[in-house]
């Protein structure tokens, strides 16, 4: 039983760190701010949450486990809010989409301003 828990947390650690790596590679490779935001807000959140869950199931006592899970919930709640705010602010200021974008439903409103 104990060994299985250890193995699961080891697997979660490796998978989580790989997701973090993928997120940062995406941050470098993707063409514009908004697509980069996809990588950071999904793969990055996923990576950090998986590693916190690994910590939660590795520590067997109630206090640590509940705090780690609270951290996961907290991170899941705040990550979309912060990326949403950043996207909204930078769109309102006028950072444009990359030239490979195919459509922009928000644009007419901006031109009318």
């Amino acid at each position: 039983m104990n060994e299985i828990v250890t193995l699961i947390s080891a697997a979660l650690l490796v998978i989580g760190s790989l997701f973090a790596l993928v997120a940062s590679v995406g941050l470098v490779r993707l063409p514009d701010l908004y697509t980069r935001m996809h990588a950071a807000s999904k793969a990055g959140t996923m990576g950090a949450c998986l590693m916190l869950i690994a910590l939660a199931i590795h520590a067997a006592d109630f206090g640590t486990m509940s705090r780690a899970l609270a951290g996961v919930v907290f991170f899941l709640l705040t990550a979309p809010v912060s990326s949403h705010l950043l996207a909204k602010a930078s769109y309102a200021v006028g950072y444009r989409l990359h030239s490979s974008s195919v459509m922009d439903d928000m644009a007419p409103k901006d031109q009318a301003k």
């Binding site: 973090a20 941050l27 590693m51 991170f75």
Partner: peptide, 17 residues
């Protein structure tokens, strides 16, 4: 700013490890 946000996520991963 997005990069800094990502760094925080990676640092949380470091702390967990």
């Amino acid at each position: 700013i997005l990069g800094l946000d990502m760094l925080v996520a990676i640092a949380i991963g470091f702390i967990a490890v």
